[in-house]
Each structure stands twice: as structure tokens, then as C-alpha cells.
């Protein structure tokens, strides 16, 4: 079967690891035409700022519920939960929501994308749910994520965190908390990587394991013409 790719954002994400949220360590810099846009330090700084923004927003941190979209959202959600815990003294619940079964391109593809874990430890009813995603581009993954969320209940609010916003939106989706806006060509690939080994295959959402080195690179389409992407 083919490796996973986000709906409508296939060229943007290259999480080739099948059933875990483990991503390979940073390798973007060594590829031709690839440049590191965010290093580990700037990603962590962005996540600190976003945690402050979430904390200062009018939503009320006691009703927060972080929901990561795999694979890239999982380590980011873990760090955001750490940051919010040190800001507020209480750790928000942290879940994982796979959007694959809600994709809008399943009937047009021949191969079926691999499913990732979904783990929703508590009810979303009347919660301020913050979806955590690494790269947002067309907005189709976020649309799928919102539909999936509604099957779990009725959140009071839904917000979106994106480490990177590429901006080529195809749906009216707004990002509430952005790490960095990065102008790219639609055909470029944006790859987020993190050294992250969840403690067990059954429990990836939250746990004691620390997230190791992260990085985010842009691979320009000119340098890798005819390669990558799923269509």
C-alpha cells in the first residue's frame, strides 16, 4: 500500500513512517534543492509563543483539549501540552485524530492510504478543541479533521495550530495560531521531521517521552522534478 499523504496536500508532507508517529531525524539539508526553514530551536520558540497565545486567548484554558493530526502534529501537540502545563500548572488532555477515513479524494485514488492511530482520551463536548498540524496548505486535512471531530461530539470551539502555513488554500479555512508563514510554490514539498519515539504502540498521544530534534525543510520542485508526491 502507499504511504500516507494528507488530502490535497500530498506533495507537502512526506511522513513515510507507517504505523507510528516516529519520524526520521532531520535529513532535509543534505538533499539537493532542499533548505532548512525552521531548525529545532526556532520550532520550540514558536511553540512557546503559541502556547502563550492560546493561554491568553479568551477561550479559557481549563476547557482546552489538544488534538494532534498525525503524523507531524503528534510531537508538536506533545510539546504544546508541556508548554501549557508549565504556564497554567495543569496539563490539557491530548488526543490523536487520524483524518484518513474522512479524506475527500479516496474514491479517485487507486491505492488506499495507510490508516494512522486515533486516540481520543476524553470527550470533546463543550471543550475548546485545538487541532495541531505541522503544515497547512490547501486546508483539506483541516476540513477532514473538523468532520472527524464532530463524530466525537460537540466542541464549544474548534481552533487550529499550524507550525507552518503555506497559504495555498482551497477551502475557507482559517488558522488561529501560526508558527511561521512560508511562501512556497504549490509543487514544492515541505517536510517536517522529529526524533520522537512514543513510549508504546498503544499510547502515542501523551506520555513521558521527550521529543528530540525537529526540523522543517522546503524541497523546491525544480530540484526534484518528477519525484515525490502521490499524484
Amino acid at each position: 500500500m502507499t504511504p500516507p499523504a494528507a488530502p490535497g496536500e500530498a506533495p507537502a508532507q512526506a511522513h513515510a513512517e507507517p504505523s507510528t508517529t516516529t519520524l526520521p531525524p532531520e535529513s532535509g539539508g543534505s538533499e539537493r534543492g532542499s533548505r532548512v526553514v525552521l531548525d529545532d530551536e526556532s520550532i520550540r520558540r514558536a511553540l512557546k509563543r503559541i502556547a502563550h497565545e492560546i493561554h491568553e486567548s479568551a477561550d479559557g484554558t481549563e476547557r482546552l483539549y489538544l488534538v494532534s493530526i498525525p503524523n507531524g502534529g503528534v510531537p508538536l501537540g506533545r510539546i504544546l501540552a508541556d508548554n501549557l502545563e508549565s504556564l497554567t500548572g495543569s496539563r490539557p488532555p491530548l488526543g490523536i485524530l487520524d483524518t484518513t477515513l474522512y479524506r475527500d479524494d479516496l474514491s479517485t485514488r487507486n491505492a488506499r492510504p495507510q490508516l494512522r492511530k486515533t486516540e481520543m482520551p476524553s470527550s470533546v463536548d463543550d471543550r475548546v478543541v485545538v487541532l495541531v498540524e505541522d503544515v497547512v496548505n490547501t486546508g483539506r486535512t483541516i476540513r477532514a479533521g473538523m468532520d472527524a471531530l464532530m463524530d466525537f461530539g460537540r466542541p464549544s470551539h474548534v481552533r487550529v495550530v499550524a507550525l507552518v502555513d503555506r497559504g495555498h488554500r482551497e477551502l475557507p479555512i482559517k488558522i488561529d495560531y501560526v508558527g511561521k508563514n512560508i511562501p512556497t510554490q504549490p509543487s514544492d514539498k515541505v517536510v517536517f521531521t522529529a526524533e520522537f519515539e512514543p513510549e508504546s504502540a498503544d499510547q502515542g498521544a501523551d506520555g513521558p517521552t521527550r521529543v528530540g530534534a525537529m526540523g522543517l525543510s522546503v524541497i523546491e520542485s525544480g530540484a526534484r522534478a518528477g519525484e515525490g508526491g502521490s499524484r
Binding site: L101, L106, S107, T108, R109, N110, R112, L115
Partner: peptide, 8 residues
């Protein structure tokens, strides 16, 4: 899921 209604 793996067999039914695949495109292409």
C-alpha cells in the same frame, strides 16, 4: 476499505 470503491 482496502478493496471497495477504489478509483483509478
Amino acid at each position: 476499505y482496502l478493496v471497495a470503491g477504489r478509483g483509478g
